[in-house]
Structures are given as structure tokens and as C-alpha cells.
């Protein structure tokens, strides 16, 4: 019944507008959990989980300083562009038991481009700040983007190659780049042998390494680097502009972890536990359980790809990051792709 309701165009539009707004709250909540857990891992008490909500409220109250060297229209516009483009990411990602609001209207390649838009807006905002620290931060952001996009694109090619081998009749929404199809048919069921599984595990490892770089978190927070360049591209941002970047980062972090879940762990709770065997298996209860299951999976990815990594490692230098992604991660992703090619070709 719920899925039938979503067929109604008006309900679908309302869902498409509401879901990203819900994601803002979820992003801030996960940010709070991340800060709390990171503190606990280093034997600190840490801030309360609601601290990111307080930070945003306070930032909206603070002065919004526009530096005299800046290009004011671009300096003020970029936080809004970052926020709006981050929200559109959620339109293409299936949300647990719910299909993506714009299912069939955008694929993985669109997501790849949309993921690049927020850092690009931040870099432009940094350049528009007219500050040496911000310019250095923006340069670093550009270099980092050019570095991690290659392994990320290789992962997407691997998925498309794998799903292109699935017969069209196996899914209602057949298209190799479709996240809807990937969510319905877990990738682990598409590979046919151990070689393909090893290939997928390599691609998963690469994606988990790319995730903190994509989200500008330690060890890849080179563009912000508080201790070296005083928050880098955010050095001149304050008040409501900084609040918008903060919110866009929260949404994007949630979206990126949700993408990892949909690509590699789309398994529903009912596929693991026979939920329908219980007497309370009404549709709203099942949808609630599936949604909570999805949020738990996103949290687990967030914890392992962001919280644990940023607590355990120190920041690396920008040239090290470029070399790491272009050589090590790209080669690893290509090797994973080769194994998938061999699996699809039936070589093993």
C-alpha cells in the first residue's frame, strides 16, 4: 500500500522534497554520534549528541562576515549552491524500503557528478574569499578531487560491467548504472565465483578509503587542515554561510555512506530474518523496521569509514594523497575491475 501511494505523482514530489530535509536531521544526528564515539575512542567524554544542532543554531545567530578582498556575490552564493546540490543527491538514492524519489530519472553517473559539486562549490567559495589560507585550501581541494575521482569512477565502471551481464528479465528496472536495480539485486548475488567476490572485496576496500577523502575527513582533510592553514577554504567563512557549509557536509556524509550501503549492502532485514512469520507483520511495522535497518547499516559504514579512520590516523600531505590515490588506489581498483572482468567472462 505504501509503495502504491508513492506511485501518485503528488505524493512522490512531496516525498522528494521531504526526504532530503529529513536527511539534514539524520546527517546532523550522525555527526553528533561521530563526535561522541570519536571522543570515547580517545578516552574523552565528548560533546552531547545534539551538539551539531546547537552549533548550527549558534552559527545562524553569529555575524556573517564578508571579507574586503572577497568577491561578495560568489562568496555568499557558494554555501547555497553547496547546500542545494547536496540535497539533490538524496533524490537518486533508494532509502531503505523506499525507492529513490527520482527512481529511473538519474543513475550512478549522475551521482558521481553531484558528489563532485559540493567540494567544487567549496573550492570556488575558498578562491572567492580573497585569503591566502583559503586559496591554499581551495587548491588542495582541487588536487584531492582530481585524485580520488579516478578510483571512484573505476568502481562505478566495475558495477556497470557486472550488472550489464545480468539478463534484462531478471529485474524490472534493468540498466547497469541504475541504483534501483543494484538495491533490488545485491551485487554479491550477481558475481558467479570466488574471483568475482575477491574483485568486489577489493572495490569495497577502495570505496571505503575514498569515502573519507570524498567527505574531507582525516586523514584526507588536507583542504581544511586546522593546524596548518586554519580551516583552509573555510578560513574566512562565518555565521550563516558557515552554517550552510556545515549542513551540506552533514547531508553529503549521510548520502555518501548511504551510497556505500546501497552498492555493497542492500540486503533487506526481511531477506535475513523471516519477519513475515511474526504476527505483527503489518506493512507500517515492516517499513519502520526496514528503515531502521537501513539507518543502522548507514551508521555502521559511517563508523568504520569515517569515525574510526579519523580517530586512528594523522593527516597526510597533499602530494602523498595524490600519489596514494593515483597509484595505489587506482591500481587496486583496476585490479578489482580485472577480477570482475574475468568473473563475468567465465574465465574462472
Amino acid at each position: 500500500m505504501i509503495l502504491e501511494m508513492l506511485q501518485d505523482p503528488l505524493v512522490r514530489v512531496a516525498f522528494a522534497v521531504l526526504l532530503p530535509i529529513i536527511a539534514i536531521f539524520l546527517g546532523l544526528f550522525y555527526k553528533g554520534l561521530d563526535r561522541k564515539l570519536s571522543a570515547r575512542l580517545t578516552s574523552r567524554i565528548g560533546p552531547p549528541i545534539r551538539q551539531p544542532f546547537r552549533d548550527v543554531r549558534k552559527l545562524f545567530l553569529k555575524e556573517n562576515i564578508v571579507p574586503e578582498n572577497s568577491i561578495p556575490w560568489m562568496f555568499n552564493a557558494m554555501p547555497l549552491v553547496a547546500m542545494a546540490t547536496s540535497l539533490t543527491l538524496l533524490l537518486y538514492i533508494p532509502f531503505g524500503p523506499f525507492p529513490a524519489p527520482l527512481e529511473g530519472r538519474g543513475d550512478l553517473i549522475v551521482l558521481l557528478y553531484l558528489l563532485a559539486m559540493q567540494p567544487l562549490a567549496m573550492a570556488l567559495g575558498g578562491f572567492a574569499s580573497g585569503s591566502p589560507y583559503a586559496s591554499v585550501g581551495a587548491q588542495r581541494e582541487m588536487v584531492l578531487m582530481m585524485s580520488y575521482e579516478v578510483p571512484l569512477a573505476t568502481i562505478i565502471v566495475g558495477f556497470a560491467y557486472l550488472y550489464a551481464s545480468v539478463p534484462a528479465a531478471a529485474s524490472a528496472v534493468w540498466a547497469p548504472f541504475s541504483l534501483g536495480m543494484i538495491a533490488q539485486t545485491p551485487v554479491w548475488a550477481v558475481v558467479s565465483g570466488p574471483v568475482g567476490i575477491i574483485g568486489l572485496l577489493i572495490l569495497l576496500g577502495v570505496l571505503l578509503v575514498v569515502t573519507p577523502a570524498e567527505l574531507v575527513k582525516i586523514p584526507f582533510d588536507i583542504a581544511e587542515a586546522e593546524t596548518e592553514i586554519a580551516e583552509g577554504l573555510l578560513a574566512e567563512y562565518s555565521g550563516r554561510n558557515l552554517a550552510m557549509f556545515y549542513l551540506s557536509d552533514a547531508v553529503r556524509s549521510f548520502a555518501m555512506c548511504a551510497i556505500v550501503v546501497v552498492l555493497f549492502f542492500p540486503h533487506t532485514l526481511s531477506s535475513l530474518v523471516p519477519l513475515t512469520a511474526y504476527p505483527w507483520n503489518t506493512e507500517p511495522v515492516l517499513f519502520t523496521l526496514e528503515t531502521l535497518w537501513f539507518l543502522l547499516k548507514v551508521f555502521i559504514v559511517y563508523f568504520f569509514a569515517v569515525t574510526l579512520v579519523r580517530t586512528s590516523f594523522a593527516r597526510i600531505k597533499v602530494d602523498q594523497a595524490a600519489k596514494f590515490f593515483w597509484l595505489h588506489m587506482t591500481l587496486a581498483a583496476l585490479f578489482g575491475l580485472l577480477l570482475i572482468y574475468l568473473d563475468v567472462g567465465g574465465w574462472f
Partner: peptide, 21 residues
């Protein structure tokens, strides 16, 4: 293999831009 509706994306970008503004 791929698919995209740019106008729909643009429409939602404007909606979210408006909400952000």
C-alpha cells in the same frame, strides 16, 4: 546504458535552492 532527466534535477535544485535561501 545510463539515464538522466536534467530538467527534473534542475527543478528540484531550484526548490532546494529556495529552501536553502
Amino acid at each position: 546504458y545510463g539515464f538522466w532527466n536534467p530538467l527534473l534535477w534542475l527543478a528540484f535544485l531550484l526548490i532546494f535552492g529556495g529552501i536553502s535561501y
